[in-house]
Amino acid sequence: MIVTKNINFYYGDFQALKNITMSMDANTVTAFIGPSGCGKSTFLRLFNRMNDLIDGTRLEGECLIKGKNIYDKSINIDALRKDIGMVFQKPNPFPKSVFENVAYGLRVNGIKDKKFIADKVEETLKAAALFEEVKDKLHKSAFELSGGQQQRLCIARALAVEPSILLMDEPASALDPISTAKIEELIHELKKKYTIVIVTHNMQQAARVSDKTGFFMLGELIEYSDTKKMFLNPDKETTQNYITGRFG
């Protein structure tokens, strides 16, 4: 589903990613772990070209999604971002109602059929395991929801436009353990339909939700393997030192 070949990425003169080659299969959860500044979020943001929005950045190498290089000039970036949804660390609902948050992407994409939109909003809120909690306040402000509910609303908003890939940048780091557990449970459900890539500082979370884990350090992909293997018997000593807290 996602293949990168010899990716080098620069913020001005600073090289943030060094020769990253890896592939992620469809309907799997891949977790990126590593210390702050290791390049994992930069790498994640390559997949929907979010780094394009930052001045002075430069990319070398290829990033193929479904076989196409997404940095090819022929790529429509809006269509790409519709197909590759993103959820951020802090829930960022729009200052609109719960319903309108989910309907927003559909309306932007030109859908006007009210019944279709209403059905899709309900379907998506159910997929995000939120519908039962908000069905009586669909037309209330999204800001009235709890942090965990807001984050699931953001996931629903991303799902409404039917992406095939979901990128998550520390989606539960601002949430309490109950909300975190709901997001993690949701990730397990969503991978049946979507390919998920998640950046997390919480290694236990990476261990719980992902099929494969990539460990990054100083812009390099140190190790990439099955999550079970990574957390029981990593190949590299550097990985072991990091995940066991022996670092530094």
Partner: peptide, 9 residues
């Protein structure tokens, strides 16, 4: 401590 890798083993 949620040990992993060699610590867990």
């Amino acid at each position: 401590y949620n040990p992993v890798a060699i610590d867990l083993r």
